[in-house]
Design a protein around this nucleic acid. Structure first.
Length: 895
RNA sequence: GGGCGCAUAGCUCAGUUGGUUAGAGCGUCUCUCUUACACAGAGAAGGUCAGGGGUUCGAGUCCCUUUGCGCCCACCA
């Protein structure tokens, strides 16, 4: 029977889509225990992740790829462990981002602004946009090999989630935790909306500090004052000095004159003012500065707003009305200069608040907005982490979380946008407010039917905050909610700890009475190979789609998952992805070798012989690996786990065991057992690797399974399911007694092989030249006799001329001698022996060995022997004994 | 002004209950197209684990400190 040959190089391009389709068709992404289906077992605890929903109109970037890879790894691992697993996918409507994108497109294609289009039409167009482009991101997530339950995909603006948002708002409002009122908020003049504190970013910038005179009424006296924003002078309602300041103390209570406007304002005393800074006097602009606002509250000062929604001067700015804030800054300053009010200007570095989205300078402004009273929510969220109901990994972020929640301020949730959840509040002509779970028909206070809904929408994060439970059906008491909530792990990047994670915990506790997840796993950011942030202006952006096209998804995933640790940023270079593409190819070829070994097995072959040394060794190593991987997974150290599997597969299985297997397969007596071992080790390796590199492992495993089923070793695959994605995770087995001895014996074989190879390289002996050799092996004689074929094959020796003796003299001919532990290897290399060089080599080795002996003897004679644990001491004693033996052999050679 | 992280081979990074000879990938040098793989194999060079101090029989790992980078939070005009 001829079997189709597998291609020499792993063809990820054809494999990935085919395998993904197979998974989806097989329904493997759906939870194995579904509360909506027959046979549901409510006692089987599920493992649940809600995906951090990407922007519905977004394009996949490496951040997504890192998140999705990590989550998929967790999901696949738990699924393989037989745990009912649910990963809820979905997208976020991303208010500002999406609205801006559609606005930009409308302007470009139709030369129309959203205002010209009108609200209703604009929202309609945005929905059309969403329908057209909204599936791009989810398709890209599929390309990453993600295995969420697509049947449960949600969108933050879909009907169910809108229902949840409405419920949440109404509940908070009824509880008195949502209020509306004029407050000083951060205003984005470019976007013409309020933004929350979190959406403001501060950057160190060069600015100018303007010094000027605040003239006092009815005199030539003045108070010198400085400001960074002269245009806010127009809104000043006081000049403040420190109450103890001798320079100005006597002026408190006098009246100052606002430059150019002539408005009269008081001079007040407040100890907020720092005597040391600037002139020691402070202008108070409560309408455009948070500190001044607080001072104004204390002193009952009027609040004057001088800017309109586009940050132009409004009617309170007198002659400057209509000017842009920066234009006014110049003009006003020029006018003040002419009026003799200017003292000086000086360059000044300060932190400038900018809009996270638009980048323009944000203005503090008085504006009527909706707020969430955050303190009670924050307290509960704080407690949940403090008492361990929610665990944050890495732990250090708990401190950051505490610090933020302890100093949190009310959350401004209204946005002057059109794309989002409209605030469910209606006003009658008399200004009464009415809300409800259903749209009200009449005013709840006066019965008026002339209701208009609040034009604002809610902050996008308001709906994202409900994500872990709204996606499961909340506020309805669905079966999904009952079974899958609270979720297990929230996996996301640390940069949205406040934006999202903290708010989910607050909302989860408030609305469901439970934490939304037990564990928060915070990953790092992806940077370029030198640790720089990726940005289009630098031109250092790596597009994950391009990387997947060129090197394969598994290579990208393995790179993102291995070589970094939780909470730390990852520097990604294409070089590393290439190396991992090579690893996928390594798996492919090692797998191909095993599969062809299975395929060419004669029908009568049985795996009934004793394990050889190499068989035992690879098993011992594999069992050790399984245990280590399990331990590492339990502590979220996926990167280290991946590294160890990589090392095992490549450096031990492929480099050593496969090579030895080639020898063992030549003897009919060991052939069956060797092929069986190859197949079983490959099987377990593929299972361990599957969460990291799902495609190549699934593909190979399918071929392996097929081959085994058709071979005389079909029993090995008897209980394998139809796909690796649902195959059982390898179990840890307790170490068996023989392992250590076998591993040590095998190490000796490796050492001998390495020494010979080393010598061959040094002496430039061509690989084709098989050398004769004899080994003086002492107590290792039996072992080495058994291993002589293996050693010969791996070291390039002539097996028929390889002698192993317990004790014998040197061979008569001229030889090179290698001392490997207690074994001497003689290689007759007539004509190539340089007596001087050989002696030098021995001398050096002897010196090294003796140095180690001295060090160990010193160690063992000190407190170490009595204070260190017995096994550690024993190990060193054994090493010392071995070293002494080696030294003795070397000495003999030098005589 | 607070808080946190990082500093290990030329480059990018692993190294989590402290165990004595510190690893990987890439890069460099030598050899080899050996019937799984040249996206490979074999071999080699390369590190006072930022500096200092301490705890310990033993420190890359724990504690203190200095220096240099990075990040987060914060209302000084």
């Amino acid at each position: 029977m001829t079997k189709p040959e597998l291609p020499k190089a792993y063809d990820f391009r054809s494999t990935e889509p085919r395998v993904y389709e197979m998974w989806e068709r097989g329904g493997y992404f759906r939870p194995s225990n579904d509360p909506n289906k027959e046979g549901f077992d409510p006692k089987a605890r599920p493992f649940v992740i809600s995906i951090p929903p990407p922007n519905v109109t977004g394009e996949l970037h490496l951040g997504h790829a890192a998140r999705v890879s990590t989550e998929d790894l967790m999901i696949r691992y738990h699924r393989m462990r037989g745990i009912p697993t649910l990963w809820v996918p979905g997208t976020d409507h991303a208010g500002i981002a999406t609205q801006l994108m559609v606005e930009r497109d409308l302007l470009k294609t139709e030369e129309v602004t959203r205002e010209e289009l009108g609200r209703e039409e604009f929202v309609k167009r945005t929905w059309e946009w969403k329908k057209k482009y909204g599936s791009i991101i989810t398709k890209q997530i599929r390309r990453l090999g993600a295995s969420p339950d697509w049947d449960r995909e949600r969108f933050t603006l879909d009907e169910g989630l809108s229902h949840a948002v409405r419920e949440a708002f109404v509940r908070l409002y009824e509880k008195g935790l949502i209020y509306r009122g004029p407050r000083l908020i951060n205003w984005s003049p470019g976007l013409k909306t309020a933004v929350s504190d979190l959406e403001v970013e501060y950057s160190e910038e060069e600015a100018t500090l303007y010094y000027f005179k605040y003239m006092l009424k009815g005199s030539d006296e003045f108070i010198p004052v400085s400001t960074i924003r002269p245009e806010t002078i127009l809104g000043d309602t006081a000049v403040a000095v420190h109450p103890e300041d001798e320079r100005y103390k006597h002026l408190v209570g006098r009246t100052a004159i606002v430059p150019m406007l002539g408005r009269e304002i008081p001079v007040i005393a407040d100890d907020y003012v720092s005597r040391e800074f600037g002139t020691g006097a402070l202008k108070i602009t409560p309408g455009h500065d948070p500190n001044d606002y607080d001072i104004a509250q204390r002193h009952h000062l009027p609040i004057i707003s001088v800017l309109d929604e586009a940050a132009r001067i409004n009617e309170n700015g007198g002659a400057y009305k209509g000017q842009d804030r920066f234009e006014c800054r110049e003009k006003l300053w020029a006018d003040m200069k002419n009026a003799g009010l200017v003292i000086k200007t000086q360059p000044y570095t300060t932190t400038i608040p900018r809009s996270q989205r638009g980048g323009e300078i944000v203005e503090p402004m008085i504006s009527t907005q909706w707020f969430v009273t955050i303190e009670p929510l924050a307290k509960a969220a704080l407690a949940a982490v403090k008492d361990g109901r929610v665990k944050i990994i890495p732990e250090r972020f708990e401190k950051v979380y505490f610090n933020w929640l302890e100093n949190i301020r009310d959350w401004c949730i209204s946005r002057q946008l059109w794309w989002g959840h409209r605030i469910p509040m209606w006003y009658c002509p008399d200004g009464h407010m009415t809300t409800g779970r259903l749209d009200p028909k009449a005013c709840g206070t006066c019965g008026s039917t002339q209701l208009t809904q609040d034009p604002d929408v809610l902050d996008t994060w308001f709906s994202s905050g409900l994500w872990p439970f709204s996606t499961l059906g909340w506020p309805e008491e669905t079966r999904d909610l009952a079974y899958f909530y609270p979720t297990s792990v929230m996996e996301t990047a640390y940069d949205i700890l406040f934006f999202w994670v903290a708010r989910m915990i607050m909302f989860g506790l408030e609305f469901t009475g439970e934490v939304p997840f037990h564990t928060v796993y915070l990953g790092g950011l992806i940077r370029d190979e030198h640790g720089r942030k990726m940005s289009k202006t630098y031109g250092n952006v790596i597009d994950p789609l391009v990387v997947m096209d060129e090197l394969g998804t598994d290579a990208l995933r393995f790179t993102l998952l291995v070589g970094s640790s939780p909470g730390n940023d990852t520097n990604l270079s294409v070089k590393r992805v290439e190396a991992n593409r090579n690893f996928a190819n390594k798996m492919w070829n090692a797998g191909r070798f095993v599969i062809s070994a299975v395929n060419s097995l004669p029908p009568e072959a049985r795996a009934d012989s004793e394990y050889t040394l190499a068989d035992s060794w690879i098993w011992a190593r594999l069992q050790q690996l399984v245990r280590d991987v399990e331990r590492l997974f339990q502590s979220y150290q996926y990167g280290e786990a991946g590294r160890q599997i990589h090392e095992f597969f490549w450096s031990e299985f492929a480099d050593w065991y496969v090579e030895i297997a080639k020898q063992q397969m030549q003897s009919e007596s060991t052939r069956g057992q060797t092929v069986a071992t190859l197949a079983r080790v490959l099987d377990i390796s593929l299972r361990l690797l599957h969460p990291f590199t799902p495609f190549v492992t699934e593909e190979l495993w399918g071929h392996l399974r097929q081959a085994l089923k058709e071979s005389s070793l079909s029993a090995l695959a008897a209980d394998w399911p139809e796909a690796l994605i649902i195959a059982a995770w390898p179990e840890q087995k307790e170490p068996e007694g023989w392992e250590d001895a076998k591993v040590a014996d095998f190490s000796l074989v490796q050492e001998i092989v390495r020494s010979v190879r080393n010598l061959r390289a040094e002496k430039n002996v061509p690989p084709t030249r098989k050398l004769a050799a004899s080994m003086l092996a002492g107590s290792k004689t039996t072992l080495l006799e058994e291993q002589s074929n293996t050693i010969a094959a791996l070291a390039g020796l002539d097996a028929s001329k390889l002698r192993v003796d317990a004790k014998a003299g040197k061979p008569s001919e001229e030889s090179i001698v290698l001392v490997v532990g207690s074994v001497e290897v003689y290689l007759p290399l007539a004509g190539m022996v340089d007596v001087q060089a050989e002696r030098a080599r021995f001398s050096k080795e002897l010196a090294d060995t003796e140095a180690q002996i001295r060090r160990l003897e010193q160690l063992l004679s000190g407190d170490f022997a009595s204070k260190a644990p017995a096994p550690v001491v024993e190990k060193e004693r054994e090493r010392l004994a071995a070293l002494k033996e080696t030294a003795q052999k070397l000495n003999a050679q030098l005589r």
